[in-house]
Amino acid sequence: MGQARELLDRMTAAALEAHDVDATLACYSDDAVVVTPDAGEVKGRQQIADYWRQFIDGFPDGRWEEISKVESGNKAVDEGYFIGTNTGSLQLPTGESMEPTGKQIKIRSVDIATVENGKITEHHLYFDELEFQRQLGLVAS
């Protein structure tokens, strides 16, 4: 197992098993960039910490169900499902806060992490934001 694979595994375990923002953040470089469908480009450790904190707080029982893992050079890729119940408030892209829906979601997702010098420098998260909102009951089926 290479450095990229080990680091993405450690970040996923910290965020989605231990629900530990500090341990999650320790996997990223100071100038890391995370790109997501819901928040767009999230730059720097503080914004990345804020992104993960609101997600972990919004889904405190959240977990990752793996489908496949790939590593090539300094990139690691995970495909799987994020599963969790929305029992905490979430920040919407508009900056507004949304009250918990109490609904459980299961969203297919792909993560691609680029690693340099032992830290994640770029992390792309791909998921269907409309499906995410549909499962939360925010949009009609």
Rank of each mutant, 00 (worst) to 15 (best):
D111W: 09
N117S: 13
L8R: 11
P37F: 04
A49I: 06
V35W: 08
A4S: 09
Y51E: 06
T114M: 10
P93Q: 07
L136D: 03
Q135W: 04
M11L: 11
D50H: 08
G137R: 01
T85H: 07
Y81G: 00
V77N: 10
R53A: 13
Q91L: 11
M1A: 05
L130Y: 06
L8T: 07
Q104K: 15
G62N: 02
D38F: 02
V70K: 15
D31I: 06
L7G: 02
R108W: 03
M11K: 09
T87S: 15
W52I: 05
G2I: 01
V35R: 15
Q54P: 01
R63L: 05
Q54R: 13
Y81H: 14
P37K: 10
T24A: 12
I120L: 14
S109A: 12
K75C: 09
G73E: 10
R45Y: 00
Y81S: 01
R5A: 12
S72Y: 11
V42F: 06
T36G: 14
V139K: 10
D30Q: 15
T114S: 12
A4I: 02
G58C: 07
E129H: 11
D9V: 11
D31M: 07
E96T: 09
V70A: 15
S89C: 04
E99G: 08
T87F: 01
L136A: 07
E129G: 10
P60D: 02
S29M: 08
W64G: 00
Q133R: 15
L8W: 03
R10P: 01
G73F: 05
A76T: 03
D38Y: 00
S109T: 11
V115A: 14
G44R: 13
M1K: 09
T36N: 13
V70P: 02
N86D: 04
E65V: 11
E17G: 03
S89W: 00
Y126W: 07
G62S: 12
V110E: 06
E6L: 11
K103Q: 14
A23D: 13
K119H: 10
F59P: 07
T101G: 08
Q133Y: 15
